[in-house]
Amino acid sequence: MDQYIIAIILGIVEGLTEFLPVSSTGHLILTGELLGATEEKWKTFEIVIQLGSICAVLLLFWRRILGLLGIGRKRTIGPQLNLLHIFIGILPAGVLGVLLHGFIKEKLFSSFTVLLSLIIGGILIIVAEKMQPRTTAETIDDLSYKQAFGIGLFQCLALWPGFSRSGATIAGGLLLGTSRKAAAEFTFIMAIPVMMGASGLDLIKSWDMLAASDLGFFAVGFITAFIVAALAIVSFLKLVERISLTPFAIYRFLLAIVFYFFILQ
């Protein structure tokens, strides 16, 4: 198959799944296997399209991001999301990621562990929906520091490939008393420094894998992921206000079945 077509397909998959609670890692592994995109250069390609997805968050939340930086923000009465919320949210996974980086790369990147995390992540989502306490943070500006830190602890689960960052943090947010939309928006904004740092570091390490002849389809994948991710985020934020996350959990279970038969058999 032409590498440009593969780049578009993988860009679509990345854009659709990166910020939904369904695991972009699981989807990219499965799709890459089915398309025969398993060479080392495709690992680097996945890093590039992840950056495309995170740029979509920068586009959609640029006003909020400028506000966090104190640029153009008007004074408001009452609590408001600030950089401290973001810092304490990303701190747990940041520290644990550094400490366990070698273990994660060596032990948790197998097909079986990804399949297992799809199932366990789906169970967590269902549990969160069933046990959700009274909502105390309806909007992202209602988040307390305690809730931000708690969501950050749940984000540690996303260090397990296939668990899904948004799945772990939104489920965690529900259990901590936030609305689905507040947890989702916090997840997306918190993902900016996390993903840019992790993807940037991986890209530097993989720089030798890049060749001038690859730049064309890398760019196509980046742009595709950027556009699709932007559409997916907007649609998802509208959707979570109306329905529960249980259908996403069921989808994860179905994906695990497909993953088992196509990857592990």
Rank of each mutant, 00 (worst) to 15 (best):
A7N: 13
I9H: 07
L10D: 13
G11Q: 09
V13N: 08
E14L: 06
S23N: 09
S24Y: 00
T25G: 03
G26N: 05
H27R: 06
I29L: 13
I29Q: 07
I29Y: 01
L30M: 03
L30C: 00
L35H: 01
E40N: 02
I47T: 15
Q50V: 04
G52W: 09
V57S: 05
L66R: 10
L69S: 06
K74N: 07
T76L: 03
I77S: 11
I77T: 14
H85V: 05
L91Q: 06
P92T: 03
A93F: 01
G94R: 09
L99M: 14
G102A: 12
I104D: 04
E106T: 15
E106I: 06
S110D: 12
I120M: 10
L124C: 11
I125N: 00
I126L: 08
V127S: 02
D141I: 04
D142S: 11
Q147S: 10
G152Y: 13
L153P: 08
L157W: 09
A158C: 08
R165S: 06
R165K: 09
S166P: 04
G167M: 05
I170N: 05
G172H: 07
R180A: 11
R180F: 08
A182G: 12
E185F: 06
F188G: 02
F188N: 05
M190W: 03
A191R: 03
P193D: 07
S199R: 11
F218R: 02
A219L: 15
A225P: 03
F226R: 03
V234M: 11
R242E: 03
T246R: 10
Y251H: 10
R252I: 14
L255M: 14
F259C: 10
F262V: 12
I263Q: 11
Q265I: 05
Q265N: 12
